[in-house]
């Protein structure tokens, strides 16, 4: 099982803070999430900032990053203002 946490506008759209699902990779995970939540489209997910256990997927294998049981995936939108 992978734990997914939504943050920022995605969280408000999905109306939930997170979910636990089975997925072997980021690409697979995003498809599952898009099918699960009405407010969140696959395109929106693919255009999010995605972190696996605190590491940006940009520093891993991008969408091909493999996921293992117990991983936490955090999904953000780019932000500004403070």
């Amino acid at each position: 099982m992978v734990t997914v946490r939504y943050f920022g506008p995605t969280r408000l759209l999905s109306k939930r803070s997170g979910v636990r699902v089975e997925a072997g990779s980021i690409v697979e995970l995003l498809e599952i999430l898009a099918a699960l939540d009405q407010g969140v489209t696959l395109a929106a997910l693919r255009n999010s900032l995605i972190f696996v256990n605190g590491d940006s997927i940009h520093n891993l294998k991008g969408f091909r990053t493999k996921l293992a049981d117990g991983d936490e995936v955090q999904i953000f939108s780019p932000m500004g203002g403070g």
Binding site: F7, G8, P9, L12, S77, M79, G80, G81, G82
Partner: peptide, 17 residues
């Protein structure tokens, strides 16, 4: 930022990222 994030979450939206 100015059309979506700031109206929806305010500057407070930055804590998580």
């Amino acid at each position: 930022i100015t059309g979506e994030q700031l109206p929806r979450l305010g500057t407070a939206g930055l804590v998580s990222i």
